[in-house]
Design a protein around this nucleic acid. Structure first.
Lengths: 264, 264
DNA sequence: AAGTGGTCTAGACCACAGC
DNA sequence: CTGTGGTCTAGACCACTTG
């Protein structure tokens, strides 16, 4: 291996730029899959062949494959080569948490009409979700989100104190809190979502232009930073025909579950 | 390492029973997390410590951790120990694909009222989803699913020929097709889900006892076997207040995405 | 029997968190 | 500086699929 890093010869390269090697391999293969290089249901090259092609060890190729697997692009089992079972989706996580980024990726103009903002003591649910001691002050925001002017979703978000302070200082014309927070060093790493259907309350109906009681698609979400600290707890209610959620799940890991309606 | 496997000393043990070592470690840690041993937001032991405790290498501990991570139980970053961010959920995959198993796990009595079964040529959508050539004959089943007698969901499933043959031979009183198929060697390994809201059509309304046009929570799903071959394509429509779906997603992998309503 | 992915080991160095 | 997880390597053996 042509190793410029004078030394043991063990280290491949210090990763000239930001990404890990296995991520580059995964991205490359993901791109090829998206281009139909192997076809839907087609077989990927063997681990050994890929290791040689990219000049990396088998372990690194396997790390890349694990990524492609959790993204739902390939299936694998002992004895045969991996198989293509899905097509890559553009950078889902950023667009998943940010309504603004998602809207823009679709060529729509996102909007955020502030309805109310307040600082109050957290209720029982919020304390559990945000892992805060009882009686903590939290920052609440309610907004009507629009797509190219049309009402699309009512957003009710609660921030813990540390994040709430940042939110309170945001310029009044801020469209994306998520992007603004990331620019201020708050990183989103994990999120837990609950998706169900709920009837519009009086406020939902007034904002969205539907009747009270009309069903909405609800996504409740708790996001955490890389340290595992909760940074937001949100209740988003979408008008029908606005969005759909897609999930990949597998027997090996399984990030999706079905629960009885009602709790939390 | 006290290694009874007289030999190279490399292999730890041939895995006395079915499971891989890293799965045992993950299961064990998952159980401890569920018991609150480390607390919500608490820190896990270091990789090295766990490797010693279980008598395995660091690589094996890391495989276990990767599992716990995709299951949404822990978050991790360089420099500090892993942190608990979620509680374990019981065997989600089996209960996710099987309405029957899910119902029973909640102490409800699942039912399946057969509405219609037919063999016809697949339409365009079905051909794409099941990766079948145009004009292939598929097996279709429509059923009303009930929870302890109450209507809960209308299920419309399409099976490719190989699976359809098995389905056609199932006893008329079969409640769970999923379980029956698994008993006949059809294994479910991966699934791709799309969750959204859709209005009840005339049949939905009649079966579920609601009005046509009333919104239902819809889950469309394509499941594949370990070889990556599609084995079912289903459109399930739930009455409101019946179910909620929960998903974990992370910046590192991301199995959840939001899409505009409409397609596929 | 050959090919291929699954599991496990052992060791190295790096990058980051926190004292 | 020390501890910790992230990345990478090299090699071994096993279990399964396929021809």
């Amino acid at each position: 291996m042509t190793d410029g890093a004078a030394g043991t010869g063990k280290r491949a390269t210090p990763n000239s730029r930001d990404q890990a090697l296995y991520r580059k391999v995964a991205a490359d293969l993901g791109r090829e899959i998206g281009e139909g290089r192997y076809g839907s249901g087609g077989r990927l090259p063997a681990e050994g062949e890929l290791a040689e092609r990219y000049g990396v060890s088998r372990g690194t190729v396997r790390q890349a494959m694990a990524l492609l697997r959790t993204e739902g692009l390939v299936a694998s089992r002992r004895g045969t080569r991996r198989v293509v079972i899905g097509m890559p989706r553009p950078q889902s996580f950023g667009e998943l948490l940010s309504f603004t980024r998602w809207a823009r990726s679709m060529g729509e103009e996102p909007g955020g009409l502030m309805i109310a903002t307040e600082t109050r003591t957290a209720d029982a649910t919020e304390c559990v979700q945000l892992r805060l001691p009882e009686g903590t002050e939290v920052h609440r925001v309610r907004r009507l989100r629009t797509l190219s002017g049309r009402p699309a979703m009512v957003e009710r978000t609660v921030f813990p104190p540390a994040v709430g302070e940042l939110v309170a200082e945001l310029p009044p014309d801020t469209v994306s809190y998520t992007v603004a927070l990331e620019e201020r060093g708050v990183l989103f790493a994990d999120a837990q979502h609950t998706i169900d259907l709920c009837p519009a309350d009086a406020e939902d109906a007034r904002l969205l232009g539907c009747r009270p009681g009309d069903p909405l698609l609800r996504e409740r979400r708790c996001s955490t930073d890389p340290a595992g600290t909760p940074i937001e707890w949100s209740d988003d209610r979408y008008l029908p025909d606005t969005v759909a959620f897609t999930v990949h799940s597998s027997a090996a890991s399984g990030s999706l579950a079905r629960r009885p309606a009602g709790d939390t």
